[in-house]
Write a protein that binds this DNA or RNA. Sequence first.
DNA 1: TTACATCCTCTAGCTACTGTAGGTTCAAGC
DNA 2: GCTTGAACCTACAGTAGCTAGAGGATGTAA
Lengths: 142, 142
Amino acid sequence: MLTIGTLAKKTGTKVQTIRYYEQIGLMPEPGRTKGGQRRYGDAELDRLSFVRHARQLGFSLDAIRELLDLSDHPGKSCAEADAIARRQLKQVEQRLARLEALRTELMRMVHECSGGQTSDCRVLEVLRDHTECLTNHEEIGG
Amino acid sequence: MLTIGTLAKKTGTKVQTIRYYEQIGLMPEPGRTKGGQRRYGDAELDRLSFVRHARQLGFSLDAIRELLDLSDHPGKSCAEADAIARRQLKQVEQRLARLEALRTELMRMVHECSGGQTSDCRVLEVLRDHTECLTNHEEIGG
DNA sequence: TTACATCCTCTAGCTACTGTAGGTTCAAGC
DNA sequence: GCTTGAACCTACAGTAGCTAGAGGATGTAA
């Protein structure tokens, strides 16, 4: 039986995060000691490892909820899990494309900066005038 | 003189976002009609365009605050603006590297999925066992 | 004057946590 | 058995950067 602190260490999670996962129903309510402290077994360790790994791969908590559900039903078709992963891959690829465009623009800004006064600063100038941009970067975030 | 709605349209911003920017001090408090409605001029239009463009390039609101301050003082050295842009470029490059690693892993997951039952699903299997991963993806987010 | 689109403030919600306050429990050592 | 101190508990607030809604006021055109 593991305390919440030990489980946290084993999975590279903060204690508060584990409690948060329990609160939103991603982790089950574990057993408790007489004094009310949580105690975890191997099933919970596996489940939390799964969650953290999926988070590292950028899956949202909602997507992870679906994946956990699929994982809990070994007879179900694999197609859904595959679809979720493909969706995630697509998102990653879109973000990659956007970030690459941003990198291009930022490099251009930085390389054109001559180091004088802000009145001649290319960085500020480019920010002031979107029409100077070579790439489209309409959506915010990335 | 522009209403907040017109300003929003011209800059591709939501009305609420403009009010939010005012609230956090990124946009100045504009003049008002007798009835209390906000009215904007060209200076505000320029400023908001600057902000939105910088946001599109991924700058944080704090970074934008600094850039606006530099922009307001044309005599200052350009070095600071340059440093902010370089910092942003570095962040973008780090995120690119992370996303590329994620893409590799996700592609592997997806390509190995044979489409059977979840009990044999490679997607779920990889998520269950981090040691199968070819890349390190320790930090969460990206 | 009447519609009605747009504006106002205020508050709450989103994701995915993280931090803090103030108090309790556990386990080890004596 | 007692003490100590780390780890635990709940509850709430805060983070970034918005976004949405309620409930009411204003502006403008017909």
